[in-house]
Amino acid sequence: MIKMARPGLFSILFISTLLAFLGSVVVGSSYVGGRELLTVLSGTADQTTRLILLEIRLPRALLGLMIGMTLGLGGAVLQGFLRNPLAEPGLIGVTSAASLGAVLTIYSGLSALFALALPIGGITGALLAVLLIQLLAGNNSSTLRLILAGVAVTSFASALTSLVLNLASNPFIALEIMFWLMGSLADRSFEHVWLSAPFMLLGWCLLLLQGKALDALTLGEEAAQSLGFNLNHIRTYIVIGIALSVGAATAVAGAIGFIGLVVPHLLRRWVAHKPSSLLLASGLGGACLTLLADIAVRILSTGTELKLGVVTALIGAPFFLLLIMKTQKELQ
């Protein structure tokens, strides 16, 4: 069971992600679907159909793919590095800081001026958070300090976000902020894709390169150090990688919970509990799950769209509980 052929797993994940991506392109609030996609591919589609598929659905599907990948990968890296099954990409404070940065642009009215003001604000927030975390966690390889610094940054940024909501002098602003915080991919454009893609790609590279170190860390910190890994450097790479990718993801879509927590757990047993193989698997799994959740958002909604962050949490929480109970049974 455990020694399942890994190419098999990867091809399953790859194909299901591809199918979910296609699904995300053909599902929407209007009639435009699979048949229309074929007309676009053959070049016979009318202008409206082309615009809907290529300018509304395609960027949305691409963002779902990239954000899901980011969350799955981020969760797997942090769970491996901290050797803590409860770690998730938001743990080190990047998600809250990016949210704060984005919310500030809504509050100050900057977000009303041009489309990218909000995601740029979010990314700025995430980058500032990294500086703060590095400062708080110090030149120290202790994972405990990293977690504590993350908790401190998270609660501080959340408190400031609440303060902004509290100070919003106009109920329309408060409402806009609240809706944004729930996380959504609705009506994002290619501008959002181009802005966030470089950050996410750079982040992925940094994170994927840590596979070997994470494998060594399963033997313990000292063993990893004796194998020649500098834990300080590794921690810095991971923090920066998470900040770039998860920060950019949050900046364009808001906070989307549970993907980064659940997906590594789901897939760990299929990669023989090897952190380095889990990274890519978890990234693909995250992409697949996010795309499916974003399809569910559109199918379940009649009229006003549900928020993606709400749906992932609704699906994720009971599923996670089930997983915990199952693991417990297996241990007994």
Binding site: A112, E176, R188
Partner: peptide, 30 residues
């Protein structure tokens, strides 16, 4: 939602400055 509005092929869209920012920007872009 951008999709349902596009299909109506309107020649004028009225929006508020605080409503559905991504939708407004997307429609402008198109």
């Amino acid at each position: 939602l951008a999709e349902e509005i596009m299909l109506m092929q309107p020649d004028l869209i009225l929006a508020g400055t605080f409503t559905s920012r991504p939708t407004v920007f997307l429609l402008k872009r198109l």
